[in-house]
């Protein structure tokens, strides 16, 4: 009897392990923090790209509405791809705040002069530390922030596409 209980419990454990491993095969190995709604502390300062003015980040963000932040760099190839979608956002009167990530200021300006400037404001993140406050892993990333709570409500890792643009537009319409 005791033997049988042992056998059955080991068997049960074995089957459980099998099921878990079986499911584990399907779990994606790519990690993303897209679902993490972290809170952002806006009390730090940054330099603007075009006029070298130093500002506190709070001043840039809409305290009552939704803000869109895009992290980009002129050296980043996918950023070039997503640029036209950022222009779409601009044409829809959606303000996008740019964070210029580890870039040479001249290259960044040339990039915008050539392709157009979709941003309402651009701040410079020379050493990449400001992007970490936004939970960025690399470039490009687009982050939607709720100004009332300062929480990230949506995050897009990698270049934007048409669906993302629609999603962003809907998000903004919903809350306003």
């Amino acid at each position: 009897m005791k033997k049988n209980i042992k056998f059955v419990s080991i068997l049960f454990f074995l089957i459980l392990t099998f099921v878990v491993m079986f499911k584990g095969l399907d779990v994606s190995k790519d990690y993303s923090n897209e679902k993490l709604n972290s809170k952002i502390d806006f009390s730090f300062t940054a330099k603007k790209l075009f006029n070298d003015e130093i500002i506190i980040l709070e001043d840039l963000f809409d305290q009552n509405g939704i803000s869109v932040v895009n992290i980009w760099a002129s050296w980043c190839v996918p950023c070039r791809e997503e640029h036209k979608f950022l222009m779409n956002l601009k044409n829809m009167n959606i303000q996008v705040i740019g964070i210029n990530y580890k870039d040479a200021s001249k290259n960044a300006k040339d990039f915008l002069n050539l392709l157009g400037n979709p941003y309402s404001d651009i701040i410079v993140d020379k050493d990449g530390t400001k992007s970490i406050e936004f939970g960025a892993i690399g470039v490009p990333e687009t982050i939607i922030i709720n100004g009332k709570t300062n929480n990230i409500i949506k995050k897009f890792i990698g270049p934007l596409n048409t669906e993302n643009v629609i999603e962003i537009k809907n998000l903004i319409n919903e809350t306003s």
Binding site: D127, G128, T129, I132, I137, G138
Partner: peptide, 12 residues
Amino acid sequence: DFAISMKLVVKK
């Protein structure tokens, strides 16, 4: 790039 910035953040 990520790690270099991260080290700076930790230091800060």
